[in-house]
């Protein structure tokens, strides 16, 4: 860890306090060498309307996704992207964004596929920074390009594919979508466009824990006691569990993945980024409709 950790008492309750920083920590350290502040939002223009001074923009959709096929950038492409952004392998990356850091945790997960070590989420994200009246600017200050090394993307530890899910029945699965998507009443998030999954419902045995349960109204993460109630007591996840989380395209479940792994401290958590847009469209996979998780399917 290049940078001093944030000693904020709230973070010390979590399994990995080093993965979080507060807005005041960012305010104090922004502009320091070796620290790159990165904004990642749902809306590609939000950064342009005003951002933390010195912060750079990373767009989940046009930059992290492969431009042609459904995957993330490969190792060479990611090295080129991060080099052009001016990020070095040793840098401390602080991610923040809109909607309770939904897209910031997605970028966190993607960067972890490439093993970037020191990445931290700014608790409360963009909304908290602005609510506190901290400085924002429209001025962009691109960093000098670097030579980020080509690092092999490791899909084996924190990423799950459809085939992994089919072999996973009997172990914890978490569906982080809205209750209506879970029951099959609708195939996309309320207020969001339908991205084409033709079937409604959920993966058999999945527990329904909508992702936003993990944050307060001010968009900061809930205290550990409250998270333990939601995920350990109610969803039955324990330390030795092997968990897969999914949503519609893998972004909301990155948020839950972050909460389970870095805040609660569950070692083995994977994000199934194919999620419902793949599962709900796939041929010959089991689906359960309604509010009950459903039994372990036979013959799959």
């Amino acid at each position: 860890m290049t940078y001093p950790l944030d000693s904020d008492a709230k973070f010390q309750q979590y399994a990995h306090p080093e993965a979080l920083v507060s807005t005041s920590w960012v305010d104090q350290h922004k502009g320091s060498a070796g620290l790159v502040i990165v904004e990642c939002d749902e809306d590609i223009l939000l950064y342009n309307t005003g951002h933390i001074p010195g912060a750079i923009k990373l767009d989940w959709h046009t930059e992290l996704n492969h431009p042609v096929f459904r995957d993330y950038l490969n190792s060479t492409e990611m090295a080129a992207l991060l080099s052009s952004k001016g990020i070095s392998r040793e840098d401390t990356i602080v991610l923040y964004g809109d909607k309770s850091n939904w897209w910031a945790t997605y970028a966190f997960w993607v960067l972890k596929l490439f093993g970037h070590e020191d990445i931290r989420i700014m608790d409360g994200g963009r909304a908290k920074w602005i609510a506190e009246g901290r400085e924002v600017t429209q001025e962009t200050s691109p960093l000098a390009s670097t030579e980020y090394p080509v690092v092999e993307r490791d899909d084996s530890k924190i990423r799950a594919f459809k085939e992994d899910v089919l072999k996973h029945f009997g172990k914890p699965l978490i569906d982080v979508r809205s209750p209506q998507e879970y029951t099959g009443e609708r195939t996309h998030m309320p207020d969001y466009p339908d991205e084409g999954a033709p079937r409604g419902g959920h993966i058999p045995t999945a527990a329904s824990v909508p992702w936003a349960k993990a944050v307060y109204e001010d968009q900061t993460f809930k205290a550990i006691d409250e998270l333990n109630v939601i995920y350990r007591q109610e969803a039955g996840i324990n330390d030795s569990a092997d968990v897969i989380a999914y949503c519609r395209i893998g972004e909301r479940s990155s948020h839950t993945w972050f909460v389970l792994k870095y805040l609660i401290g569950i070692e083995k958590v994977r994000n199934y980024d194919g999620s419902w847009t793949e599962w709900g469209s796939a041929v010959r996979v089991p689906i359960v409709k309604g509010a009950e998780p459903g039994a372990v399917p036979v013959g799959f």
Binding site: E42, D43, I44, L45, L46, N48, T49, D98, D191, Y192, P193
Partner: peptide, 30 residues
């Protein structure tokens, strides 16, 4: 419904002229 953020619209026709009114949140500049 095709928009990620809450966008609403209404049109009116006044003597064969179309008036177009749209609302979209400032948090969704695109």
């Amino acid at each position: 419904e095709e928009c990620q953020s809450p966008v609403y619209l209404i049109t009116e026709i006044e003597s064969n002229r179309v008036r177009v009114y749209l609302t979209a949140p400032v948090e969704a500049p695109t």
